[in-house]
Each structure stands twice: as C-alpha cells, then as structure tokens.
Nucleic acid binder design. Sequence first.
DNA 1: ATGTCGCCTCATAGGCGA
Length: 260
Amino acid sequence: MVIASWNVNSIRARLEHVRRWLAAHNPDILLLQELKAAEFPAELFGQLGYRSAAVTQKSYNGVAIVSRSPIEIVSTTLIGDEADSHARFVETLISGIRVVNIYAPNGNPPASDKFLYKLAWMDRLLQQLQIWLKNEIPTLVGGDFNVIPEDIDCHKPSSWMHDALFQPEPRARYRAFLGLGYTDAFRSLHPGETGQFTFWDYFRKAFEYNRGIRIDHLLLSPRLAQRLESCEIDKAPRAMEKPSDHTPIVARLRPAIGNS
DNA sequence: ATGTCGCCTCATAGGCGA
C-alpha cells in the first residue's frame, strides 16, 4: 500500500501537477494540503478513480485525502477548540487504517499571536495523538507539520534560526509526538542522512542549490510502523514548471499479517 | 530587508500569508 503527502500550494494552480503525479505513481492514498480554495474538485478526482474527503475554506489552508478505497470521515476538527475555524485537519478510516491529514500552522513570526496559535495547535494534536494510541486502530498522521525536527533537516541551521519552523518550542512538541511512540517514517529508514528536504523557497534559486527543509512528515503508530517498507521524497515535481514549493513524500506499507 | 508565489479585493496594485 502506497500513501503519500503533498502540500500543493493551491489545488487550482496545481491540478495538472497532481493529476500527472497520480497517473505516474498510482498511490492508494494521497494527502493534500494548502488547497487555498473553498471548493475541492472532487468530481475531477472521481474521474481519475479516487474518492475524496476535503476540509476547505476560502483563500487559506485546506486539506484533502484522496483514496482508491472508500473513505469514512471521522472528524474534520482537531480536539480542544470548537471555535477554531482553520481548515487544517481531517481524520478518516480507510481500509482499516486511521488516516489523518494535517496542515499545521506556520507560526511566523515567532513571538506573535500566530506563533502562540501554532504552539497551542500542536499541544492539541499531541493530546489527540495520545488518545489515538489508546486503541488498536493502526494510525497514520501525515501532512505539513511546519516543523524542522532536527538540524540535519535543513541545509543550514543559521538560515532558519529566527524562523518559527525551527524554534525550540515547536521542535520540542514534535519530539513529544515521537515520544508517545509514533515513528517518523522517513527518518526511521534514513537515519543521519543529510540534504533530504520536502520544501524549498521559491526565491534565491533555493531548489537549484538544495537549500531546503524537511517539514512534511508521515507519522506511524507502533503497529503500523512495523509494516513500513520504504519512505522516499520525490523531488521531481519540484523541478517542474510552476511547481508547488513542496514536493511529495511517499511511504510504502507491507500488507497486514494474519487477521489484523 | 530581500527574494517569489497564490490568494483576494470597494481590483488592473497592493496587502496578506507563506
């Protein structure tokens, strides 16, 4: 089973990119973030053989899961704040797996209300991650976490020192996610590997020089982590014309063994 | 500070968010 995640930075602007990528890779599930549109083109994906579950708002944010298999939507809001109107979260059940797609707040600049919202949002996610572990459903939480986990996840720490994505507080929260028992799919199979990024700024030829950061992640619950076969970053879409600033991360899971 | 995108609007330039 192939599950991927891709921040597309506007689904309208990237429709052809996504269509081509699906045709070329045929993933079972694709998590999309930053749709930046009130409407998700569900019919179009239907024509490609994908069902979809989308949480959208005008202009900003927006997440969608597209899947070959039927999707059961469990929740469209993150625990802990009923008044939160940002479209950043969708929890589903697909083929017996709890598949969660997130678009965590960017939080720039640090020491702003946006930064405090980022930290509060991550605290809420931590609480939800803890609850999910209490039952047996294998769980995958993927998306744009807007956190650079370690120094090796950026080309040069000094360039990101003053950025919200690199601050100690969000990084501590990301470590807390892993501390609960979740596995960072990419890092677990590529320990210590440098220069592996999922995002490059549009300016200063950042992609050409591979000056990027790794902020798109796939987290696996303990049972699901045992099924992890591979996890790779596909840099090809970032090299295309009019690309998203992010590129897909792709995980392959072995089939469940026995009656599980 | 800047660079570059994509969105939106009391729109054709500027502001916001990233």
